[in-house]
Design a protein around this nucleic acid. Sequence first.
DNA 1: TGATGCGTTTCACTTATTGAAACGCTAATT
DNA 2: AATTAGCGTTTCAATAAGTGAAACGCATCA
Lengths: 228, 228
Amino acid sequence: MAEPATRTVERALQLLGAVCDAGAVSLAEVSRETELSASTALRLLRTLENSGFVRKDADGEYRPGLRLVQLGAQALSHESLIHLAAPALQRLVDATGESAYLSVRGHQGTGSDHAVYLAIAEGTHSVRHASWVGRSVPLEGSSLGVVFAGKTPDAGYVVSDKGVEVDVTAIAAPLRQLGATGAADDGGPVAAISVVAPSYRMNPAEVERIGQLVAAEARALLGLAVGS
Amino acid sequence: MAEPATRTVERALQLLGAVCDAGAVSLAEVSRETELSASTALRLLRTLENSGFVRKDADGEYRPGLRLVQLGAQALSHESLIHLAAPALQRLVDATGESAYLSVRGHQGTGSDHAVYLAIAEGTHSVRHASWVGRSVPLEGSSLGVVFAGKTPDAGYVVSDKGVEVDVTAIAAPLRQLGATGAADDGGPVAAISVVAPSYRMNPAEVERIGQLVAAEARALLGLAVGS
DNA sequence: TGATGCGTTTCACTTATTGAAACGCTAATT
DNA sequence: AATTAGCGTTTCAATAAGTGAAACGCATCA
């Protein structure tokens, strides 16, 4: 992979990602992280800055820029998946009181795999799992990891406690194929919905109840999802 | 401006923007819009695709990619402004029944200036102004345009009817300086809040009432806003 | 006062980008 | 069927463009 690509652009995008991951970084830091020479990093960051993709704050550190916020917001609001999933997430919250998430597999490339929360419905319990849209969570050892690996058992959902976070039980189900074309993909689903709850509130019966709800909503979403 | 920049990256970012603006475009279309030769556009789009910033759908058209959605969502959720402004917008809705918006000046560069809606609180009237996060609106002739030009009168708010949209009255107020440093900027505020309502429901007294509410919330936000 | 690390600029070396042209393809058009 | 038009794609020589080591000034720290 990756033969036909322009190195300059790749590096610039890499820098952009590094800036976003960090939130705010100095030139020296990013250039170290991305293993680019300071002069190259500076030049590319300037280009990104000219285009509004990053900006320099008062401290001289680089931050995600307005253009990125704009394009991201556009892209987010055009993602029909989010709109389609929102009612399903809300139903899960209504039925369980726990927080529900829509996530997609993050872009694989920079080492370990991650998922990104695209939509959230907050639980109603006063003690609840809380996160935010755009949060990137590691897949390793999580129920989302199993789901994205395409290893979901026949029951249609995956449970994990003692996963990424302690004292937390996550129940996830895959949104298998979104496009109208049922083409054989690179394997694994592209999105998933999940319910995340404090473990102390869970028991086998409740886990199974929630699991079946999650699996049912995931199946229902398949019917709605259209090609675009 | 724009002397020290790498052309390749600039072009790639330009393509990225074009793809996002269009939502879904063919290679021929973007290459025409961006005035790039087809071969160059193809090569750059491939690079963007490899990095997940754009993706190719089943029809072979280019769309905003997951990486962009991820970075955008991250950037959006890290924008403390949005979190700070959300309660203020809601208060405006509660007090007026009309839709309230937080907007920032879009990246100036591609011709006419625009603003981008970053946060929205929908009005409660059944007939209300509706828009979406990420929407880009032209500044020309709008109250936002006046606000971003730094021409807000002493009253602290700007009113425009018959502006960008007909039959719509917009009332906007500037969020002057966000950073802790009150440094002399490039001039003009970077953000604004506004209330947008159907004109038929407005009258001078109501406009003034809303104007003072908007101006008050804008001033209140100044106190909260911190450097980061 | 010297040492360290930063952001920045310069510059010779080439490497990597470029775009016209040509290809195969599908879908209208004649 | 033959023809045209438009698309995505590949090739390739010309050269325009990106590269990074080195050096600079400026902070801060020992």
